[in-house]
């Protein structure tokens, strides 16, 4: 018994040892400008701390990684209609509050610019530079009638399902649903 305790004490508690990378995962469900921005702020902040970051975009969150100039190629009337209403693209994200037909959002964008806050596109670039992993949910793509070529394929690391997200999240030290 006593020998095990001494053995435990001998093992040095080095920082190196602790350096098995900590992990953050995020489900970005919302396509609201403010919420997506908050997601990227947390993601880049965590990456700056040397953490592994995975962002899983699903449902309206996919709008953040949709091309601004994407054409509506959805099959069928319902999906086509959805595509019209839910156009998406980083420049079209509405505020979750005070969108006011776009007026509130454009004012918020101006304020953010004044404060030198990066916009969504700059945030995505920054996240990619810091090796943040961006995943897109395949099932939602089907349901919403979004094709891969409507998405920013240059920044997406994979098209996966819930199971793949969970296999990452179960090792996550911080898992968020935004």
């Amino acid at each position: 018994m006593s020998s095990t305790t001494t053995e435990e004490k001998v093992i040095p508690e080095s920082k190196e040892e602790k350096k098995t990378k900590e992990k953050v995962t995020m489900v970005v469900f919302s396509g609201d400008l403010d919420k997506v921005l908050a997601s990227f702020i947390i993601a880049t902040g965590a990456a700056s701390m040397g953490m592994d970051v995975t962002m899983f975009f699903t449902f309206w969150g996919l709008n953040a990684i949709k091309k601004n100039e994407a054409k509506n190629t959805a099959p069928g009337v319902m999906k086509k209609m959805l595509g019209v209403l839910n156009k998406g693209g980083s420049k079209r994200l509405p505020l979750s509050k005070f969108h006011m037909g776009g007026m509130g959002t454009s004012m918020m964008k101006k304020l953010m610019k004044q404060h030198k806050m990066p916009n969504i596109d700059e945030m995505i670039d920054l996240a990619k530079q810091m090796n943040v992993k961006l995943l897109a949910c395949t099932i939602t793509l089907d349901i919403l009638g979004i094709s891969k070529d409507q998405l920013r394929e240059d920044v997406i690391d994979g098209y996966v399902g819930a199971v793949s997200y969970l296999s990452e999240a179960k090792d996550g030290n911080v898992n968020l649903f935004i």
Partner: peptide, 10 residues
């Protein structure tokens, strides 16, 4: 603004 100072430092 936050978190850019930390991000740039990193």
């Amino acid at each position: 603004l936050c978190p850019m100072p930390a991000v740039k430092t990193a």
